[in-house]
Amino acid sequence: SWSRQVGRALDMCSAMILVLSPDGLESENVDDEWNYYLDNKKMIVPLLYRECRVPFRLHKLQFIDFTRQSYDTALSHLVSALHVIQQ
């Protein structure tokens, strides 16, 4: 099933890219996924795609901001952050 596949992928992946937007914050699935990672002390890289009110639990994480810089600049910041995690 879809939810079993997602659950398996959540456990298999070592870290998460969380795409934040007003729709992302309204999604129950997205909410469950990032809370699952935080509860299991797994790494999250939040990516601010569209302006929204960031949940309190995510405040201490460093964001890659796609709203205030070009796509290419933000992408290169994201790639650097992900390469550090991969090592």
């Binding site: 879809w2 596949q5 997602v6 992928a9 959540l10 298999m12 992946c13 070592s14 870290a15 998460m16 890219i17 969380l18 795409v19 937007s21 729709d23 992302g24 309204e26 999604s27 699935n29 997205v30 996924e33 990032w34 990672y37 890289v45 795609y49 569209r50 992408l75 994201l78 790639v79 992900l82 390469h83 991969q86």
Partner: peptide
Amino acid sequence: FFVSYARKDQPFVEQLAIDLKRRSIDVWLD
């Protein structure tokens, strides 16, 4: 990397996944 996102953001996320794969970063999208 697991990518968590809302359906409405899918076009952005799909482009992002292509760009990350080009840089040898594997992502999982549902």
